[in-house]
Amino acid sequence: MPVEYELDIPQSLDEALNALASDNGSSVTPLAGGTNLIIDIRSRRERPARVVGLDYVSELRAIDCTSERVTIGSRTTVTDLLDSAEIAKAAPSLVDAARVFAGHMVRNAATVGGNIACGSPAADLVPPLMSLDAEVTLSSKSGSRTVALADYFTGYKQDVRNADELITQVAWDRLPEHSVNTFRKLGRRKGDAITVTGVALTVVVEDGVCQRARIALGSVGPTVFRARQAEALLEGKVLSNELFDAAARKAASESSPIDDVRASAEYRLHTIETLTRRLLTQAWARLA
């Protein structure tokens, strides 16, 4: 379907931020891999007046791992994540998600920034990043700020980003030794499926006690979110199967899924519980 829009193709981050600065970005839409945006334009869900293509903003396509911190540029593609040996070590859950993300062609185009910015509760990279306590950097012509990913979304497809800001990177502190970080996506088929329920988990254990627990859930609420009450049940405790049962039930009770063509809310609640329990049990077995 024809929709006419102006297309800007900035050659650097500065140029991109300049382009977004015109009328405070209100009529400007960033375009990364286009795997959401182009589809939305074709179906008329989006009718942008001006599109800023990020293809040549090479600063944004980078993976940087130090001994303390991991930083991923927003224009990094899902395939880039899979090709990185460092990410495989530093963020197993992200690799779990990247592996079952769409199909080859979409993985080659789809970006980390686009996955976060699209705001979908089914965005597969978001639960892993949230379980890693990732922070999002937002930049505009007038400066940069950093927001915890867990605080980034404010409602269904709503976020704290101002129209003239770009997501430039996500970053987090590396996990300590005794930790497990995993993600399980449940879809209606193995290849190219939209997530029905997604569970990302981080557990850090020291001296037999759970120091940190992160449970981030996808597709069971208006946004991806952390099941903070379930996490609280685990932190500071000696882990056990009873605790996992309780945490899994709690995670389900913190969820507010809807019925759609893929699954019913009831099924989603059931699988949040079973998958959370399973991931916790498996994590525990690996840490023991």
Partner: peptide
């Protein structure tokens, strides 16, 4: 084809 789900090569 995002709702009408035929088996992919992965399936």
């Amino acid at each position: 084809f995002s709702e009408y789900l035929m088996p992919t090569s992965m399936d």
